[in-house]
Each structure stands twice: as C-alpha cells, then as structure tokens.
C-alpha cells in the first residue's frame, strides 16, 4: 500500500506505537494515509481499536518476516 507518511515504531512496545500514531496523525491532511511500521504484534489489534475510538479509518495490516506494516487513513481532525 502506498502511504503519504511513514511512522517508524520498530522496536517499540505497547503503548508507544499508539501514542506516536496519535501524535503523528495530527501532521497529516484529511485523506492522507499513514503507515505505521512496528515489530510489536500488538499493533494488529491495537491500531484497529485506536481507529474505532478516534474515528479514523483502518485500512489493514501486512506482516513480513515478523515486521508489521499498518495503514490508517485520516478522515477527520
């Protein structure tokens, strides 16, 4: 998936990827896609949960060799 902005959370454990995502998303414009890269498997469940709570759109997560690439579209401020 093509993202507008990438947030590197490799090596970070819960809750840091989520806290960083909530900060980073503020820099995006509506409609842009944020890619969150992480090694903590929790991202698979946590990012959709965060999206549900904040109203952002969760686009999916890909796993490659123990690395996770998760995508969020900013749909609101």
């Amino acid at each position: 998936m093509k993202a507008d902005v990438t947030l590197d959370c490799f090596g970070l454990l819960c809750p840091m990827p989520i806290i960083s995502t909530s900060q980073k998303i503020k820099e995006l414009k509506i409609g842009q896609i944020l890619e969150v890269t992480a090694t903590d498997e929790g991202i698979k469940a946590d990012l959709p949960a965060w999206c549900k709570a904040t109203g952002q759109e969760f686009l999916g997560v890909e796993e490659k060799n123990g690395e996770f690439f998760a995508y969020v579209r900013k749909v609101k401020e």
Partner: peptide, 8 residues
C-alpha cells in the same frame, strides 16, 4: 497515556 491518545 493510551486513553489520552484515544481521545479521552
């Protein structure tokens, strides 16, 4: 911190 990040 997580709940603050979730907009609470």
């Amino acid at each position: 911190t997580t709940s603050a990040s979730m907009g609470m």
